[in-house]
Design a protein around this nucleic acid. Structure first.
Lengths: 108, 108
DNA sequence: AATTTGCGTAACTCAGAAGTTACATATACA
DNA sequence: TGTATATGTAACTTCTGAGTTACGCAAATT
């Protein structure tokens, strides 16, 4: 089948997928009950779910013919690390001083 | 000209742009000095810079014919807020309990 | 057993992001 | 003044993510 192996950053780039994660933060939902919240076909939602699953943003529990989607922390880790790097950058007074010095001296 | 008005999530979905932000966290750079770090044409880099600028990830200081790109916090804010929401979700023991309860009861 | 329900997948279309080359412009330098 | 440098932009091509419809299958229902 198609690739559908997007990294965490690409996964959250889609507004629909962010909305799905939000909805799942309120309650775990099946594919169909998720699809009720969107203006797209169920297969489209199904694909998004696959993307979210493959990237570790959700786990899926099969109950009979239903697939219950549950939010999963794993997918968020990479994003968290990435943002933390820049948080550290902003947070550090040393960095700020460094930047200031660069601004003043780095104009060859 | 073209739109190039991507939101913060779309902005960081591109690996090249993330790399640019990383490089700019080390030092402020001109368009050309940035382009030296990539296997793409300078106009391509120029476009990415425009995207980063429009989304508030960098500020630009014109010095003569050079454009110095400087990391800017603003663009990160939306991402930060977004992640914080889910951090709160994971962090809250109450939420975890709630999720546990949902798992046990929500199987109509 | 037949039908309905919940879902996945294949095949396709479409839009737009990301790259290219070619060109224009403004500043610095000789 | 003429040339090199640093950059932006227009026009174009290419690729792929995101949507669709049509279909298949297994579990539930009757």
């Amino acid at each position: 089948m198609e690739q559908h192996r997007l990294d965490a950053f690409q996964v959250i780039a889609d507004p629909s997928r962010r909305q799905m994660l939000y909805l799942l933060s309120k309650d775990s939902l099946t594919i169909n009950s998720l699809a009720d919240n969107f203006d797209m076909s169920r297969p489209a939602v199904s694909k998004h779910i696959k993307v979210l699953y493959n990237a570790g943003f959700i786990s899926i529990q099969d109950i009979g013919r239903e697939r219950h989607c549950i939010l999963k922390q794993e997918g968020f880790n990479e994003l968290h690390k990435w943002l933390e790097y820049f948080d550290a950058f902003w947070g550090s007074k040393l960095k700020n001083l460094e930047a200031l010095l660069n601004e003043r001296t780095n104009k060859k």
